[in-house]
């Protein structure tokens, strides 16, 4: 396993394959199928300060090699998370990273302070990129200054590693990434979903109850690769690549583009074994290419 172990902003990972927020519940739901101890890290579904009921259904629709979702950050709030969800993960060795969202910088700050006291939480992923909520979310990630101020606020509120998850729905991703880095982010993760829409040609109505949603799955991988590559040129902090990873080869592509780790998202809906299989496939790739550690691949794309 040495070929895959890594320390990312002080978090020790046995491999660089994490499960992306929102695609794995809070871990326990998926534990029926996957040995959680085989994962690099678990990133829990976004939690907010107060419970959120989420968006009006239908919330998902399939598109070519992908899917749109408009869940709208449905969750029971941080209190329920700490009382009922987080403790179920205590029996696993895999680090838990908690994904958070808020409608204001104040809410992010408050959530961060609460989580900062939890020994089970090894890192915080700041979701400033959800396309499915009207307040917060993308309001921050569109604006370099708002990004900087929010990340600085979260940074001040915790000693835990801060991962900032960026939206692809911006004109200059490198600029936003740099602002996050300057404001004290330890890691950048990208990309969140692409803002999309689909229409039913029989009813002339949008296929999602929320009208628009976030596109994920293999369809978005080339965009994610491009953005990871661009951000890797712009920042010095590590990058976690996310977007359409279905196989070990997809993960390798992200490493080459400049990602130090990856998150598997939509693939979890298709194949419950996806993250564990991807770890195995990365190992096979390293063996067959005589590579002693996957880190040798990071950023090694040659033009």
């Amino acid at each position: 396993m040495d070929k895959l172990a890594i320390e990312l902003c002080g978090i020790k990972l046995k491999n660089p394959v994490m499960v992306a927020s929102g695609t794995f519940g809070h871990g326990e739901e998926a534990a029926k199928f996957v040995d959680l101890d085989k994962l690099g890290a678990i990133i829990t579904k976004t939690i907010t300060l107060e419970p959120r009921q989420g968006n009006k259904p239908p919330r998902i629709c399939e598109t070519a090699s992908g899917m749109l979702n408009s869940i709208g950050l449905q969750n029971k709030g941080v209190k329920d998370f700490l009382e009922n969800r987080l403790p179920t993960l205590a029996k696993y060795k895999t680090p838990v990273i908690v994904n958070i969202a808020g409608e204001s910088a104040k809410e992010f700050e408050e959530l961060t302070k609460i989580l900062n006291k939890e020994p089970l939480v090894k890192g915080i992923e700041v979701n400033i990129s959800c396309p499915n909520v009207s307040k917060g979310g993308m309001l921050f990630c569109f604006d370099p200054r708002a990004t900087r101020e929010l990340v600085a606020t979260v940074r001040k509120a915790t000693s835990l590693p801060v991962i900032v998850k960026l939206s692809p729905n911006v004109t200059d991703i490198a600029l936003i990434a740099k602002e996050a880095e300057n404001a004290g982010a330890d890691v950048i993760s990208l990309i969140n979903t692409l803002w999309g829409m689909a229409i039913d040609t029989n009813t002339h109505k949008p296929k999602l109850g929320n009208i628009t949603g976030g596109l994920s799955g293999p369809a978005i991988k080339p965009i994610a690769i491009r953005m990871v590559w661009q951000v890797a040129q712009a920042v010095k902090i590590p990058i976690i690549g996310v977007g359409g990873i279905m196989t070990g080869a997809d993960a390798i592509e992200f490493f080459l583009a400049g990602a130090s780790a990856v998150q598997v998202g939509t693939a979890n809906f298709v194949d419950t074994q996806a993250p564990v299989r991807i770890v195995e496939e990365i190992k096979e790739y390293l063996d067959s290419h005589n590579i002693s550690h996957y880190k040798e691949l990071v950023g090694k794309v040659t033009a």
């Binding site: 929102g22 695609t23 794995f24 519940g25 739901e29 998926a30 029926k32 199928f33 579904k45 009921q53 989420g54 259904p57 239908p58 919330r59 998902i60 629709c61 399939e62 899917m67 979702n69 869940i71 449905q74 939509t266 979890n268 809906f269 419950t272």
Partner: peptide, 22 residues
Amino acid sequence: EARMACGIGTCLGCVINTTKGY
């Protein structure tokens, strides 16, 4: 029935409106 992704309760994509909420 509802459009479904994961089938195992993780994605929250297949909700319907009930007297207990979604």
